Amino acid sequence: MTDGAITVTHLVDRERFRAEVEEDGSPVEVGFIDYTSDSGYADGDRLALTHTVIFDRFGGRGYAGQLVRQVLDQIRADGNKVIPVCSYVTSYLEKHPEYADLVVSSS
């Protein structure tokens, strides 16, 4: 990991993407995005991103934006789609139209 950059791990069994940074040579969790998954669509699975958390002591460093970007990139690479439920994810998507192709309606 480079200084200021996060590493994102997909914890499939927990329906969570975990963000970590290196601190004193060890990985430290800084936050996560939770989701629910709905499988079986012609355009891949649909992941409803429900909750984004960056722990207070790591706030203000841009980790939330890095986390959402990396999660969206992973979802795209996997051929899946996104249902933005979390307000932070919704706001991020409004500011980054390059991810508009990933979004499906929650209805």
Rank of each mutant, 00 (worst) to 15 (best):
residue 44 G to P: 12
residue 45 D to S: 15
residue 46 R to M: 05
residue 47 L to E: 06
residue 48 A to P: 06
residue 48 A to W: 08
residue 49 L to N: 08
residue 50 T to Q: 11
residue 50 T to K: 10
residue 51 H to P: 08
residue 52 T to Q: 02
residue 52 T to G: 02
residue 52 T to F: 02
residue 54 I to W: 03
residue 54 I to G: 01
residue 55 F to S: 09
residue 55 F to I: 07
residue 56 D to K: 12
residue 56 D to R: 11
residue 59 G to S: 13
residue 59 G to A: 12
residue 60 G to W: 01
residue 61 R to S: 05
residue 62 G to N: 07
residue 63 Y to F: 10
residue 63 Y to T: 00
residue 64 A to G: 06
residue 64 A to V: 02
residue 64 A to K: 05
residue 65 G to F: 01
residue 66 Q to L: 02
residue 68 V to M: 05
residue 69 R to F: 10
residue 69 R to S: 14
residue 69 R to H: 14
residue 69 R to Q: 15
residue 72 L to F: 00
residue 72 L to M: 04
residue 74 Q to K: 14
residue 76 R to I: 07
residue 77 A to F: 04
residue 77 A to L: 01
residue 78 D to V: 09
residue 79 G to S: 06
residue 79 G to H: 00
residue 81 K to V: 04
residue 83 I to Y: 03
residue 83 I to L: 11
residue 83 I to A: 12
residue 85 V to I: 15
residue 85 V to L: 13
residue 85 V to Q: 12
residue 86 C to F: 00
residue 86 C to P: 06
residue 86 C to G: 08
residue 86 C to S: 09
residue 88 Y to I: 00
residue 90 T to N: 14
residue 90 T to V: 15
residue 90 T to M: 14
residue 90 T to E: 15
residue 90 T to R: 13
residue 92 Y to P: 03
residue 95 K to N: 11
residue 95 K to M: 04
residue 97 P to E: 15
residue 97 P to R: 15
residue 98 E to D: 15
residue 99 Y to D: 04
residue 100 A to W: 08
